[in-house]
Every structure is written in C-alpha cells, then in structure tokens.
Amino acid sequence: MENKKSGWNRIALILALMALAALPNAAYSQAPAISTSWQGYSVLAFMISVFVLALTYMAGYLLNSNELKIMAHDELYQAIATAVMIGLFVSVLAWVNSSFSPGLAVAGGQSGTVLDGATAFNNGLIDSTVSNYQSYLEKLVKDLGSESSKSAYCSFLGAGMNVVICSNMNSVRGTLSLAYNAVSFALADLYAQSWILQISNTMLLSVLLPMGIFFRSFKFSRAAGGALIAVSIGFYLIFPACVLFGDMLVRTISCSTCQYAYLAQPPDAISVPRCNPFDPSDSTMMGFFSSVMKDNHFYEPILFHVIIRCVLMTIFSILVTLTAIRSMAQYLGAEIEVSGLVRLA
C-alpha cells in the first residue's frame, strides 16, 4: 500500500515537472524576446530553482537520504508557493491597470498602466509647477538683492554721506529665501521620486524579482528572496498607486470643500519694483510688501504645492509602500526592518 502511494507521488512529481517545463514556452508566446521580459526572467529563475531542487532530490535518492528527499520535497512546495504568489501579483497588476486606466487618463494626463500614470503625473508636477515656482522665486530673490543693495552717496567739500534707503526691502528677503529653499527641496524630492518611478518602469522587475524568486526557493536564502520580491512588488505597484491616490486626494479635497479655491491656482505674479536710492518715497515699496506679505494669494499656493503636494504626499507614498513591503515580506518568509529607510524618507 505504502509503495503504491509512493509510486503515485513520483508520477505526480514527474507530471508536475513536465508541466513546469512548458512554462518558458508560455512566456515566449507572451513576449517574443525573453531577454527583455521580466515575466521570462521570472519563469527562468523559477525553472533554475526547480532544477536545483531536482538535483537535491536526486542526491537524496542516490545517498538514500530521507532528510535530503524531504528537504527537496518541502522546498518544491515553497517554489510552487512562490510561483502562485507571482501569478497572483500578475493578476492583481492586470486588474489594477485595467480598472484604473480610465482614471489615470485624468490623473496622469495619459492612459496606460498605473506606473505610466504616476510617471506622467510626477513629470508634469516637476515641469509645469514646481520648476516654474523655483525659477520664479529665484528671479525674485535676485532682483530683490539687486535693488535692496543700492546705497546713495553724496559729498560736499570733503564731507560725505552714505544713505542706504533701499535696504528696507530686505525685510521680505528672509521670507522669500525660505520659500525659495522650500521649493528647491520640494523639487529635489520630486526628482528622487522620479528616480524610483524610472527604475520601477525599466529594471526593477527584470533584476530584483527574478533574483527574489530564485533566492526564495532555498531555505537558507528564503528571507533575502522574500525581501527582494516584496521590495519589487512594493515599488512597482504600491508606490505608483499611492502617488496617484495622493494626487486624487489633493484634487478632491483642496478645491471643493474648503474656502481656499485659489490654492490650486498659480501664485500671483509679482515683480520687484525699481528702487531709487535718492528718493525716500516709499509708496512703491509699500505696494510691493503688500503683494508679498499681506496678500495670501502669493505664498499660500506655493506652500500648498510644496508642503501638501510634494513633501506630504511623497512621505505618504513612501510610508504606505514601506508598510506594505514589510507586511508582504512577512508572508514571503522575511522579517525585515524598514525603520532605517523610513528615517531616510
């Protein structure tokens, strides 16, 4: 009875291996060039790990070692579990992309995958908004410095006097500099985010995911493999989805329910007036101060874009992604410590 059962097990194992051998063909049929398809790499990594396990099983058979055979057997289940998880990931990816495509056309400015939408949104934010604010504020602080540094000098019979009448313009210099710094660092933030999206779009799944599948198939490297798979899925799917979700939140809340409809408008265009160092009349200056400091149509839209759209939403995306990575890694057999990365974020 026991022998009969063992025989069936072997037949089942052989059939399973034969079925697995068909997987590369399936990958080829979906993507003609296996060298450019992450699905192909993943199947290849899976096949290599199954091959190594088969060798382990054969070694166990040769040495008549039950331990080796049981180990190969258990690890094969782990490899199959990995394949199932990757299959699940592919399905979720397809579902998310197909379900969110119509929304992405609005959020990202183009239809396509979640990643395409997030990339288009991020590039748009950089090019059309934050870069413009940055160059605008840069011009303002330069002009302000130029005008406020004027000092008049009069002399008569050796006696002279230096009058620094324009220096009162410096009263807004600190505030403008602070705004300029904030916008510049928001831009750095978005550039770093564009790097994450860029590598997710090009190499993340072709490099880290197959490595993860391969490593996860063996007991001694399961944690590393699980961590790699979790990082790949997190940054490929969760992160861009969070970027778009964050944008949607901001769009929904900022203009409809609050009284700050002008937040989403560009800041008022102001320019630094020309200062005459011999004319102490300050009526022109007062108009300038008023437009910079008193009128909230200048600073508040800038701060809204910097603090809410750039800094807060980036932190939100990173935090959610890292939390998801940590949870996924636990299911994939890895206990990872992400607090270091959270601090970096």
Partner: peptide, 10 residues
C-alpha cells in the same frame, strides 16, 4: 553723486 549697488547680492 552716485550710488553703489551689489547687483548680484540676492
């Protein structure tokens, strides 16, 4: 008379 200016001090 004239005035001095640090044009790039901004």
């Amino acid at each position: 008379p004239g005035y001095s200016q640090s044009k790039y001090s901004g």
